[in-house]
Design a protein around this nucleic acid. Sequence first.
DNA 1: CATGAATGAGCGTTCATTCAT
DNA 2: AATGAATGAACGCTCATTCAT
Lengths: 206, 206, 206, 206
Amino acid sequence: MSTKDRKLIEKENRRESILAAAETVMTTHGIHGLSIDLIANETQLAKGTIYLYFKSKEEILSILSMKARKLLFKEFQKIEKSDATPIEQLKDLIKENYAFYKKEPLYYDLVSLYEVNNTLTETEEMHESGQEIADLIIKIAVRAKEEGTLNPNINPLYFSFCIWGMTVGVFQLIKVRGALMNEKMNVSEEDLLNTFLETFENGIKK
Amino acid sequence: MSTKDRKLIEKENRRESILAAAETVMTTHGIHGLSIDLIANETQLAKGTIYLYFKSKEEILSILSMKARKLLFKEFQKIEKSDATPIEQLKDLIKENYAFYKKEPLYYDLVSLYEVNNTLTETEEMHESGQEIADLIIKIAVRAKEEGTLNPNINPLYFSFCIWGMTVGVFQLIKVRGALMNEKMNVSEEDLLNTFLETFENGIKK
Amino acid sequence: MSTKDRKLIEKENRRESILAAAETVMTTHGIHGLSIDLIANETQLAKGTIYLYFKSKEEILSILSMKARKLLFKEFQKIEKSDATPIEQLKDLIKENYAFYKKEPLYYDLVSLYEVNNTLTETEEMHESGQEIADLIIKIAVRAKEEGTLNPNINPLYFSFCIWGMTVGVFQLIKVRGALMNEKMNVSEEDLLNTFLETFENGIKK
Amino acid sequence: MSTKDRKLIEKENRRESILAAAETVMTTHGIHGLSIDLIANETQLAKGTIYLYFKSKEEILSILSMKARKLLFKEFQKIEKSDATPIEQLKDLIKENYAFYKKEPLYYDLVSLYEVNNTLTETEEMHESGQEIADLIIKIAVRAKEEGTLNPNINPLYFSFCIWGMTVGVFQLIKVRGALMNEKMNVSEEDLLNTFLETFENGIKK
DNA sequence: CATGAATGAGCGTTCATTCAT
DNA sequence: AATGAATGAACGCTCATTCAT
């Protein structure tokens, strides 16, 4: 291993520890509570040092958003490798997304941050992490089509964007309005999820 | 017209001009870039004067958000009163929502602002303006059910939340990623919209 | 009664109603919570009108401070007219001052405000209201001296300032630190008052 | 001396220079005229820099108040260690307090600041610096009692509060009204002080 | 005499970023 | 490479006072 490599690895380690600190901070202070000061505290690094590894606070956020996607992707992969039918798998993706939102609210917010905040600009790497998820959905959709269980008019590429957007939108609604809807209109999260699943299933089946 | 009336009208005009300035500011600086200072600059008023007409920055935002909701609602009402079948009307709502997003991007963001930013708290009035839209969708869904063209398992109440969440989610995706998707994957917005519409239609039909 | 007189009386009435409003405001918002806005609200007058009757917020405060002194003076007068010996009367003045502080915290604060805030400048009228109290104390002290019960070295004029300063200081201490002293050191307000009274009595007796 | 030590000393110097600037500002603008802006101007530092050294304006005030208390305490200590009798020492405390008020009017105000302004909350450290003074007075009072020269009915604890309150009250009166009293009534500050001292001496003697 | 809209300096505080060491 | 002191614009908001009507 060359000195140059070692340097690169060390640099990567520092990056990782800064990102880990940022997560810790966000877990206690919320996404909007993230600040360079708090990251510096958490890492025991100087404020200026953070800027040697990341060009801005925004970059840190973007990368964590990407990491969240990768986590979600891993869960999605398990589903894709299961024995369930493609249609069942697609529904499982939505269910898993819901579970993820419940289990890892921070990561879920980070996934959405990306979708929501237009001041963030995607790097190539980030784009790829998003693409992984899309590709996986496309793969399942293609299988369903081959099997003959998916509506033949549906283009799997477009379809994968659709399912992603729809799902994010419905959960965002649940997140922000779920409590209020439950209180004022007696709407339960689970039933809403089921309605979505059913609509979705009908929508894609042949 | 009495002096008192004139005063009230003048006051209302000032409010309107401040709101208009806020819109102008947001158009150039984004929703998060709105500040009292910039509004004051834009209106050529002193900072303190803004507070004679609105009690806080949040009030300004909430009023504009409400205005946006009402604008969208008006467009939705036209659809609800049209001769189209309920199913067609539901699809038209989505198409109109898309058109609204294209024509009035700022207003479109303002509609969703409260769906997205949890540091803001909805007033009763705000809630109502959101409810109007939901009620209208429910009304159409109920008609479709009575007609027998809607999947009988679907509860119109839950359904209205679903369609809203799905639609917002898909357009948000288009907004943030549309350009990139188009460039990199040759995915056209229109086709994505059509895929969504088709999935949706299949999803809700009996 | 001439027109000029009527005008003066009307003007005085307005002044009184503004002062009354200021008191009401302070009762709910505290001395530091007093603002011209709140007075205008309370009086149903325009903000600018307040400035026709008083040249500044400070003037209003000064006058109310004076009024508080007059109230205290009235209570003091009752004591001076009582049958008690001069020495007893002097002690009664201190007790009454304590009672006043307990019963009318706002007025008590206003009396002290005057003594404490060096940005206020006394008008002739205000000076007189302070002098009334001083004169009354002097009067009692002179009687005590004539009776032979007061230390013959003490000049009644100086003495009256002394008793006032001492008393205000001790009660101020009780007000600000009473609760803390009670908690941390088990010092009771009553015992402190009694210690003061005893010290005082010994101090002035022949 | 290590680099770390040097850094600490530099930091302390900066703190001191900010505190000195705050004093300068207060000397010209009064205690209530102190503002972060003016301190920044005076120090030629950026506003934000002040907050690197002090967490709030209140912290600056409380430190200066403590400093003033400690200064006064030092003078009091000299008296306590003198050869004078306890009774003489107590009188000397009052005289020294008067001298302090004359020599260092700003510090004198700062000592009382927390006695007067109830929007400020004392820290433990602040409380202690006040307690030091109280304890010293108690110590002298106890000696006087042991010697048999203090009125045996007087509890030294209560007594220490009394002397403090009385003294502060009388000097406050002198401060605010001294000039006026002199002009209008030919009352000299010195004679007033002497009257207070004599009353006090009689009051505490056996 | 009365109004009340308008002012604008002022407040304490925050924080991403820079740069001399 | 690492530091961390320093920056300074920005934030939302307040309020005594003025002045044209």
